[in-house]
Structures are given as C-alpha cells and as structure tokens.
Write a protein that binds this DNA or RNA. Structure first.
Length: 459
RNA sequence: GUGGUUGUAGCUCAGCUGGUUAGAGCGCUGGAUUGUGGUUCCAGAGGUCGCCGGUUCGAACCCGGUCUUCCACCCCA
C-alpha cells in the first residue's frame, strides 16, 4: 500500500452494525410513510444545474456540488471569459449538472414533468441521499440521507395536521420520546414585518429573529439594526422577544399584534386551526409548540413551517423540518399547486438514538446459530444441519474450516452468537448434536432426527 | 466561505525545555488447554509519529503549506 486510502471530507463508511441500525430507522419511517398513504418515488442523484440553481438562496447555491462536464470542456470556454478568472461566470460553461441538494426541488420538478400521470392530491415519499458542499461538523455531513413526505395539490390544513401526526407516530415508534415539534407560519412572520413597517426586509428580519435563543434579545436587535431595520420597528416587534406562556396565550397576543395585517391574521387562524385540531386529536409522545422565531432559511415556504428538535438534553441541530410552499412548482411552469411536506434527517436521528441508547439490544445480532467444524465428514453433517436450520428461517452458519475449537468458539463469542452447535465424531456416530447456549454455558444433546425440537425451543 | 482545533499501533490514548532503540491499556496471534468461548497466566507480532517541505549536528515535538477531525460563525437535516 503506497499510500493510505481515504474518503472525501464529510463522507463515511458504514460498517455492518451501523447499516443495520440505519436500516432499522429507515424501515420504521418507510412503514409509517406507507400507512399514511404516501407513495414512493426516486429521482436522479444529479440534476441539470438550472433545476437547482437559485432555488435555495445565495448560500444554498454556494453549497451545491457542481459536476464538471466531460471531455475537453475548457477548450470550449470563451477566451475573454477564461481570462477573467471569475469562477461564478465560468462555472455555467464548464458544469451543466449538479448533485441533488435536497429532495423537495427535484420533487417539484418531477411533479411538473409528470403532472398528467399524477392523481392529485399526490402524496409521495422519497428516501435518498443528498449532497452539500458544507464544512462538516458533528451531525453535519456532505453526504446524508433525507426522508421526505410531501403532499401536492391540496391546500387543506388537514395535511399539516396529518404531517404532525406522522412525525409523532414515527418518533414514537422509534422510542425517541419527547421530541419537540416547533410550529410557525410564514404569514405570521410576513405580517409582523408588515405591521412594523419592514416588509421589504422580511428575510433579514426573520433570519435575525431566528437567532433569538442563540444570541439573545440584544444580539437580535443589534443584527436587525445592522440590516437597516429601524429602531422604532424593532420596538414594535419587541413583544416577540419574550413571548412565553401556553400556546393559546401566545396566539392571543400575536393576534392582537397582527390585527391590522390581513396576511398576519390569516397566519394566526391557520396556526390556531392546526393547534386546536392536534390538541383534540392528541399526540403520543411528541411535544408541539409554537415558536414565532422559527424562520428556516428556505425561501419557498409560504405557510406553515415545521422544525423538529431532539429531546431536551441532547445537543443536536434539528432532526427534521418542513413546511408549506404555495408556489414551488410555479418555478417550473406549473402555477397554483400547493404543497406541504416534512423531512426526517436520518443521520442526525441515528446520532441521537445512539446517544440515548435507543436501539433494540440484539439489533445487530447477525447469527442465531453457528455450527462448529470438526473435520471433513463432521463438517458435511454440520452443513446439512445448517441447511435445515436456514430453511426454517434461522440465521445459521457453519465455520468454514476445522480450525481449533478454541478459535471457533472465540469467533462465535465475538459475533455474539447465542447458540453454538457441536457436531463432532462422537455425535456423528450416534446421530446427535450438542447445542451450547453461550450465555449460560448449558449444553443440551438432541437427536439429528429431531432438529425441530431444538428449533421449537428457539422461541 | 471566515476564524480556531485535532491527527502517534487495529481502537482509546501517554510521550517533559528538540536528544540514543517512540510507550501503555484494550484488541490480535501463539502457548498453558490437539472437543469448549466470555475469567486468568506467559510469550509474540504490529508504527514512513496524517502528508509535503523548511530550521537544526539532531524533529513525534519548532516553522510553513496541505489533507483530515471537531468547534464557533454562515447556513442547515
């Protein structure tokens, strides 16, 4: 080995136990996507650059992985453009494809392209990796999985309600209790900006407000000032900085604040409907809270905004997010189709579950039974036995060579195999086999003709 | 993209102001135990000290660059 091999920054290999645990999460998410009536689709890992560019804001564009054209692409670049050394201008000329940045925009593209084949409302789920050229941190990777469920073609608020139930159902089934589903509405944010006279600074206003729990009231005010939001506007918005109390109390105060804004009032009534409906239906283990500071950078949300935080005491960014977007397919030429969706961040959910020790105990047990190998004749008999066990759906294997029994036992131990079968010369002669229960050390002899007795005892 | 941080055996980590042959625990291999693991005892293997360059008589240690890790911004799952 001339040089140690490596993998790109922010990517990971997954070993057997990790894959099994990841699949455990995938399976539960997928199961509930299906019981809620979502249908699966998949889209290419890379899209045409123009499909993705400009959909995620300037920051998003920077984080998109571009794919270099094939062939002698540089020779086709105009001389003056080439000499400008301006990456932003040259990139479109040498890169026409880019890796998928999320699942929502490709889905919007899919809906537009397949609109005549789809029955609306169309509920789709999609579980695929996405890529971002971000600087990695804990829980932040350059390749990670998103698990999305979206509904297009219905502007009913029942969709929002169902999506909250879906979050609750999945996290409850994962035994990840106490997750916090934060709920806000873009119309409320817009209404506030309108009421305080900073309508054209909506994005700056919300981005600053979003940082309230991080940099505090003074920090937020400072950032707003620096973005050109006036002192008096900030003063008007100040009730937001310490909006506490029950969800209902907060709604009442917001309603008062927004009474002169048609859009804001609409946002309040939407939020109120969702809260009241969920309250009457009840949640299993998630907590639903209103959080007016919840902004999220994605600029296509127009109604509800969701974000899921890990249970208290676990330091991890959001493990899920979503919202409603009225005009996403409009960008691709299909106006007036409303969509709402949520996403589960598989990789972060994994980290949280690992930290809290929530995976089932024997989840990575890859073998139920290992037959030891005592030689050619005995090994063949053991293989026959292994075959029978496999036909009964038991995860069984035979040690491939007649290595020292000590070594074979050690292997079984390391693989955490609960039962080891010994079938040596003695057993072969009297048509029997010995089962050793590794945990207790207890050994039981069975007749080869009565394998079922052993299988029956395996529970 | 900005600022900082980390890298020594398969893993977790020691290694003094720069000084001879870079250590430990766990794991691995062999033996005590040629059909009994997880406990114990004995022995052994395993390292271009992330990589490239510089300073020096001499570099794991100092300097520069680069890659990687993690952290804070930015943003986000």
């Amino acid at each position: 080995m001339a040089q140690k091999p490596s993998i790109p920054k922010g990517t990971r290999d997954f070993s057997p136990s990790e894959v099994i645990k990841r699949n455990y999460i995938f399976d539960i998410i997928k199961k509930h996507f299906q019981t809620f009536g979502f249908q699966p689709i998949e889209t290419p890992s890379f899209e045409n650059s123009e499909t993705l560019m400009g959909k995620y804001g300037d920051e998003g564009d920077r984080l998109i992985f571009n794919i270099l054209n094939s062939g002698d692409f540089l020779s086709k670049v105009d001389d003056s453009l080439y000499n400008s050394r301006d990456s932003n201008k040259i990139t479109p000329g040498i890169s026409e494809k880019a890796l998928r940045y999320d699942l929502t925009v490709p889905f919007a593209r899919y809906v537009v392209m397949h609109q005549n084949e789809l029955d609306f409302p169309f509920k789709r789920y999609q579980i695929q990796p996405v890529w971002r050229a971000d600087r990695p941190q804990k829980g932040r990777f350059r390749e990670f999985y998103q698990c999305d469920a979206d509904v297009v073609g219905s502007d009913s608020l029942l969709q929002e309600v169902e999506l909250i139930q879906l979050y609750d159902t999945v996290f409850n089934d994962l035994k990840l209790e106490g997750v916090i589903i934060k709920l806000n509405n873009r119309k409320i944010l817009a209404g506030i900006a309108e009421v305080i006279g900073a309508k054209d600074l909506l994005i700056d206003f919300t981005v600053a407000l979003d940082k309230l729990d991080k940099i505090g009231e003074d920090g937020v005010k400072k950032e707003m000032l620096s973005k050109g939001i006036s002192e008096s506007a900030i003063q008007k918005a100040s009730p937001l900085f310490n909006l506490t109390g029950s969800n209902a109390d907060q709604l009442d105060r917001l309603e008062e604040l927004l009474k002169d804004s048609e859009e804001g009032s609409k946002g309040i009534s939407e939020l109120r409907f969702i809260m009241e409906t969920i309250t009457s239906l009840g949640l299993q283990s998630a907590k639903l809270v209103i959080d007016v500071t919840l902004a999220r950078g994605l600029n296509y949300y127009t109604g509800a905004i969701f974000e899921v935080g890990a249970p208290e005491g676990v330091s991890m960014g959001s493990i899920g997010g979503g919202g409603r977007y009225d005009d996403l397919t409009g960008i691709f030429g299909l106006p007036n189709v409303s969509g709402v969706g949520i996403s589960f961040g598989l990789d972060r959910i994994y980290l949280v579950m690992e930290e809290l020790g929530l995976f089932p105990e024997a989840i990575d047990r890859s073998l139920d039974v290992l037959c030891l190998n005592f030689g050619a004749k005995e090994g063949l008999a053991a293989l026959k036995l292994t075959t029978v066990l496999r036909k009964h759906g038991i995860k069984a294997d035979i040690y491939p060579s007649d290595a020292k029994i000590n070594k074979q036992f050690k292997y079984a131990n390391n693989r955490k195999v609960p039962y080891v079968i010994l079938l040596g010369t003695e057993e072969l002669n009297n048509n029997s086999f010995v089962v050793k229960h590794m945990e207790t050390g207890k050994q039981t002899t069975y007749a080869l003709s009565k394998v079922e007795t052993f299988i029956g005892g395996l529970q």
